[in-house]
Structure formats: structure tokens, C-alpha cells
Simulated scan of single mutants.
Amino acid sequence: MTARTLQITIDAADPEALGTFWAEVLGYRQMDPPGGHATWDEALAAMGVPEERWNDANAIVDPEGHGPRIFLQRVDDAKTAKNRLHIDVRAAEGLEGDARMDALEAEAARLVTLGAKRLERFEPAPPLGAGWIVMADPEDNEFCLD
């Protein structure tokens, strides 16, 4: 069997705003519009999509082409429970102890300026545990700084 391509889909009240947040977090960019259109607004208008539906979906991509595409889709229902699947943002790979936690704290502070919420810090617990910080995006989807 051939390996599959992975896409992460996030339900959102505001796909454009949440896509902008995640693009900043991950160093991603907005997916290019189709068919040689200069902007998504131009493409959607050409496709006959009513303007009130232009923010029904959004997609962001890794500019290097290595990471998965992230697709954000508008949903009417609000988030009501803890995520069963979440994103871990690897912000301190290869670091341990205080250096690791300092790197995670610096990234947490940056993400708060983008609209994230800091929820909880978990201290390193030897022998296997390395600390992490639980955050929430602007629509309260939990993710971890790891």
C-alpha cells in the first residue's frame, strides 16, 4: 500500500481568522487560490460563491511542502468538550530541563500575543517525562507546546 497524505481538519466559527492564527503558529501560509486567480475573493466570485459564504472554509499549507495541509471549515455548533485529538506544537525539540521549559515559556508568550490562551503547565517528571504547556487557540481548541 502507498503511504497516504495527511490533512488536518479543524471545525471553526471563523475559518479565516483561525487559519491566520494557525499559520502564524506553524509558519504556514494561506493556500494559493485556484485557476490563476490573484486572490481567494476573486476566485470565489468567479466560481459564483455568494459573498456571505466566502468564509465557509480556509486552508493553510507548509511553504516547504513537508507538513500536512490544514483545512478549516465553518460549523455552527460551538465546541463543548475537551478535544480527543489535539495538535502538539514542537517548540523545544532536543532541549531538556530548564532550557526546554524556558523555550516553551517563550513560545507560549508569543502565542498569547496572537490570541492563544495559556491553560496549564506540566513540569518535567523524570525519568521519561519532559514538561509541556497546554494552550488553547482563539476558539478554545486545546493544543500543547511540547
Rank of each mutant, 00 (worst) to 15 (best):
K82S: 13
Q73D: 13
A91T: 03
N83P: 09
A78Y: 09
A23M: 02
D98Y: 13
A106K: 11
Y28C: 02
Q73T: 11
E52Y: 07
D102C: 12
G65T: 09
L85M: 12
L85I: 14
G97T: 11
G115Y: 00
P63W: 04
E93L: 13
E107M: 06
I87M: 08
R29G: 07
E42D: 15
G48P: 03
I60W: 00
E51Y: 08
D56Y: 01
M31V: 07
N55R: 09
K82T: 10
D62M: 02
R69K: 07
A23K: 01
F71K: 12
D102Q: 13
D77P: 06
V49N: 03
D56P: 08
A109C: 13
A81I: 03
N55H: 07
G36R: 02
A45L: 14
E42Y: 15
L26H: 04
D56T: 09
M31S: 11
H37S: 01
D88L: 07
N58E: 05
W40S: 03
L114W: 12
I87N: 03
E93S: 10
E96P: 12
A78G: 14
D88W: 13
D56C: 05
R100G: 02
E52F: 04
E24V: 00
I60D: 00
P68Q: 07
V25I: 06
G115Q: 02
A46P: 01
G94V: 04
G67T: 03
A59M: 04
A43H: 13
G94Q: 03
E42R: 10
D98C: 13
R29D: 09
A92F: 07
E42N: 15
I70P: 00
R29L: 06
A38M: 15
A99F: 03
G35L: 02
G35K: 01
Q73W: 07
L72D: 01
P68A: 08
L104I: 07
L72N: 00
K117G: 10
A81K: 14
T39D: 15
V49S: 05
Q30S: 11
K117F: 15
R74E: 13
G94N: 09
D102N: 13
R69Q: 08
L95T: 06
R29E: 14
P63H: 06
A108C: 13
R100F: 04
R69F: 03
W40L: 09
P34Q: 02
D62Y: 01
R110V: 03
I70V: 08
A109Y: 05
V75S: 15
P68R: 05
A116H: 01
L26T: 01
L114F: 14
R90Y: 14
V112Q: 12
G36Y: 01
R100N: 04
A59G: 03
R84Y: 12
A99M: 09
L111N: 02
M31C: 10
Q30H: 11
V25S: 00
N83K: 08
R110G: 10
D41A: 15
A57S: 09
A38R: 15
T113P: 14
